[in-house]
Nucleic acid binder design. Structure first.
Length: 480
RNA sequence: GGCCCCAUCGUCUAGCGGUCUAGGACGUCGCCCUUUCACGGCGAAAACACGGGUUCGAUUCCCGUUGGGGUCACCA
């Protein structure tokens, strides 16, 4: 059967992201969504979202919200409203009935205990575990009246099926390997296998791009597609993402929700997007690829076939890059709440303005938003400043004397800006016969409580005359 | 265990028979810039899993071995 039969007259590319709302949006799902988004946007097609909530016990509204919020944060906008799979149960049952009517499906009255016994036996004999087709050719009339049953696909038992996967290449499986899967459960609700196929068809999905863990499912799903005589979608199974240890990404290590990258790790969405894009996909030697470039460059042919591991350092590096590129006002808005949390009070409009002014000096030094907030902390500390050990060390000996000299010179500065401050401090260093570093370090310690900070002239200029002199005063007074 | 997939520096990858003494990036280590830390610049160490073929010639093609991963539900 030709996959393009039904879509020959309609070349629009339609992709979809179909998460099951049983948890947050982890980075594996985010990358799958990104690739689907890119493929659709590149082709000028549509990108749809379907919430696979047929598992009523495990699906939750918070999970739905988290997934959709995560997608919005990453800039993965979808077309139309999300489709909720559970609401389409009647349509799924309808298709199952059609297959029953056409003989492509049949009723199976085997009980759960019976099937478990069957598998135990297969395990004992070291046989593959699969349904043995015991009701495939039996007359339903043989079942006890009113007995519960499931509807199973009457799968091909001979020959082989080949999928021309856009990422994995041609993959062939013997049909004998596939058993008659359940389409409708005994309570009449559809299984995932049935629902996916029906929904993808009804939604007009042309390209199914999903995790490699679904490759085996594709063969079974194709059985339903063919039984219904529908167009076969183009498949692309992308390799899974592994944790730093090479094992499958699980809740234990790398599998954080994207909101954790945003809230706890202080990652910028464009950085995570770029990182995820380069995980499993490459375009020559280029590593820094923003959304616009990615949309123009993305091609399934460039997706690798082997799983990749997450690398926090690489993400941090990319994040640092995008922080340096980011607009100061945007960064200020993003960092302000973090600073407020650190100093345990809200920022005033003046505080906010100061943060904005300091941003050009702050952002080259940060790899994430937490770094940025921490780097801005010295601006808002209340006197007397707490000193870290190294800073305290720099304020020993005759440092207070030097600081007093600095204060004297600074007091005479007419225009309190970087140039004015620099001139004054250079005068101090020259008169004392010291290198600028010998002057800058004690001053930095006194003004920030630390040994690292933005350039000392900037620090002084940002702090302002009064605060600068007061902080210096705290150190000359206590030492004297 | 059956079936399926994968295999280049620690990691992400470029390479689609000769251009490979295998390129880039992150990380690591030096040096430079410099008032500190970053940023930036320069440089170094670091990989074709193994064994057979095919070929005049294999990192590139084929087979096997080994290793890793995925999947085998009335879960998605």
């Amino acid at each position: 059967m030709d996959a393009s039969a039904d879509t020959a007259s309609n070349t629009e590319v339609v992709t979809r992201f179909a998460p099951s709302p049983t948890g947050f949006l982890h980075i594996g799902g985010a990358r799958t969504a990104l690739f689907n988004w890119l493929l659709a946007r590149r082709a000028g097609g549509r990108f749809l979202v379907r919430i696979e909530d047929t598992d009523r016990a495990r699906s939750t509204q918070p999970a739905i919200d988290a997934i959709l919020d995560g997608m919005r944060w990453l800039g993965l906008d979808w077309d139309g409203e999300p489709v909720f799979q559970f609401q389409r149960a009647a349509r799924h049952a309808e298709v199952a009935q059609a297959m029953l009517d056409s003989g492509h499906a049949y009723k199976c009255f085997a009980t759960a205990e019976e099937l478990e016994a069957m598998r135990a036996d297969q395990r004992a004999r070291k046989q593959p575990l699969r349904y043995d087709g015991r009701w495939r050719d039996r007359d339903p009339a043989e079942a006890p009246a009113g007995a519960p049953f499931v509807v199973r696909l009457r799968a091909e038992t001979t020959g082989a099926t080949t999928i021309h996967d856009q990422v994995q290449g041609d993959v062939t499986v013997q049909n004998a390997e596939l058993d008659d899967m359940v389409l409708l459960r005994s309570d009449g609700t559809p299984t995932y296998m049935l629902a996916v196929v029906v929904d993808d068809h009804d939604m007009g999905v042309t390209h199914v791009v999903r995790g490699d863990d679904h490759l085996n499912n594709a063969f079974r799903q194709l059985g339903i597609v063919r039984a219904m005589g529908w167009a076969e979608p183009v498949y692309a199974h992308i390799p899974l993402i592994h944790g730093p240890d090479g094992a499958k990404l699980s809740k234990r290590h790398g599998a954080l929700g994207v909101e954790a990258y945003r809230d706890e790790l202080g990652i910028l969405p464009e950085a995570l997007d770029n990182y995820l894009l380069r995980l499993g996909w490459g375009h020559g030697d280029t590593d820094i690829i923003d959304r616009t470039a990615a949309t123009a460059l993305f091609d399934l042919a460039d997706v690798g076939r082997s799983p990749s591991r997450t690398d926090a350092k690489k993400l941090e590096n990319l994040n640092g890059h995008y922080i340096r590129e980011a607009d100061d006002a945007r960064l200020t808005d993003l960092v302000a709440p973090r600073v407020a949390a650190l100093i345990d009070r809200p920022l005033t409009p003046d505080d906010h303005a100061l943060l904005l002014r300091a941003m050009p000096e702050l952002k080259p030094r940060a790899r994430d938003l937490n770094d940025l907030a921490d780097g801005a902390l010295f601006l808002y500390r209340t006197r007397p400043l707490p000193l870290d050990d190294k800073a305290a060390g720099l304020l020993q000996g005759d440092a207070p004397v030097l600081l007093a000299t600095i204060a004297g010179e600074l007091a005479g500065v007419e225009t309190w800006d970087v140039a004015g401050v620099e001139a004054a401090l250079r005068v101090v260093a020259e008169r004392a016969g010291l290198g600028l570093g010998k002057v800058a370090q004690p001053l930095r310690a006194a003004l920030t409580g630390r040994t690292t900070s933005p350039g000392i002239f900037d620090v002084v200029a940002l702090l302002g005359r009064d605060e600068t002199l007061a902080r210096i005063g705290d150190r000359t007074a206590t030492a004297a």
